[in-house]
Write a protein that binds this DNA or RNA. Sequence first.
DNA 1: CCAAATAGGGACAGCTCCATCCCTTTTTTT
DNA 2: AAAAAAAGGGATGGAGCTGTCCCTATTTGG
Lengths: 215, 215
Amino acid sequence: MKTVNRMHRALVVEDQNLMRLALMDQISTAFENTAVLGAQTLEIALYELAKENFDLVIIDPGLPGFDPTSQDDRLSVVHRIIEASPAALHVVITGSDNMTEAEQFRGLGAVAYLGKTGLEPGMLGDVLDDISTSGFSIRLSKVTMTVPDYFHSALTPREQEVITLMARREPGMSRTQIYEQVAGKLGIDRDSAEKYFKKARAKIMKSDHKLPVGI
Amino acid sequence: MKTVNRMHRALVVEDQNLMRLALMDQISTAFENTAVLGAQTLEIALYELAKENFDLVIIDPGLPGFDPTSQDDRLSVVHRIIEASPAALHVVITGSDNMTEAEQFRGLGAVAYLGKTGLEPGMLGDVLDDISTSGFSIRLSKVTMTVPDYFHSALTPREQEVITLMARREPGMSRTQIYEQVAGKLGIDRDSAEKYFKKARAKIMKSDHKLPVGI
DNA sequence: CCAAATAGGGACAGCTCCATCCCTTTTTTT
DNA sequence: AAAAAAAGGGATGGAGCTGTCCCTATTTGG
């Protein structure tokens, strides 16, 4: 909680544009009144770190200009960023994660090591909780999905949320019970949850004539 | 254009959750009335492909359960998905892209091969244009960023857009000219663009006291 | 059979964002 | 000095999303 209140400036160092923007969006959504910068290269990152102070820096060590198979290169990227921003919290995110590397980055001063596979939206709060509790957060990649994701472009955000929650419910409950549960999770009325679900399903049926799994 | 109008059902096969959701969001935003499914594993993907028809399938061949260093494994993933959905357009997206692999996937029937680095939001339209023009679209990874991304959680979407466009303007233009240009790109009035910019800058100054590069 | 659950709607207030038009004051340019 | 640019506002209408409450049929389960 202390950490959360002090999060006023963050930097994401990641070369893949969509991933960088997704991470920036995660931070931007998680904290109010926070500026989030994004750098595609180490040069841009170091330039920004030299100019201003940051509270949080997220690093993917596989950057352009470095050998992705060289462990020295990966360590060097993280080391230089940590040196350039000693006051910040440093979170390493990678697609090819393993325990050995986690320990190496921890040795350099990183406070978290996260595998990209299985990294959920909204994970940032949990990770920061880990950090303030135990000083370090590690989440290695793992496969958890059993049911496909489902988006539909005709749905409003609320409708989309309700559909997603409904699709992931445990089987064997009545609709009424599920509405109650979904309403609880979203902090709205049972009636409203039911309404959003019915509206969403009607839209999907109209355009697609096929409902997603679990609906 | 033909392709675009027929896009009613799409599938994204990608194990990294944030990337999969970002790609799904891209499709969802690009097409109206489109259902977009997401699969983390080949099993889920093949199950969905067996159940229903899809118009577009996006594939990251580096999936859980396969050896990321084995070219045979990567080819096998794409091959099995294409076999399971012969009527769809197949787009391969990968972090470790090269020309040789692009040709291999093209041989299997893929219509596009995209490197994750440098893959911009909004790229989908361009890629589909390439495909309907020349039958194949290839975009290898490249670094293009010179100025960092900048998000601020206090900004509305419109304000954020205007700030992003302002930050990427060519230098040497007067504010008035830039407002005109931004207004053109967003399809709004010069006055409105100016208003959004001033409002955004005021919010940033209030919370941060530091403006992003180029503002 | 009766009660609950389900499908499928309408009406409404509150809110935020979008977009436009308007205003004053200060600074810069010509 | 006059004109243009820039900073910093206010007022307003429209649109879409949110959330609540309400309604009528039809189906299902005990």
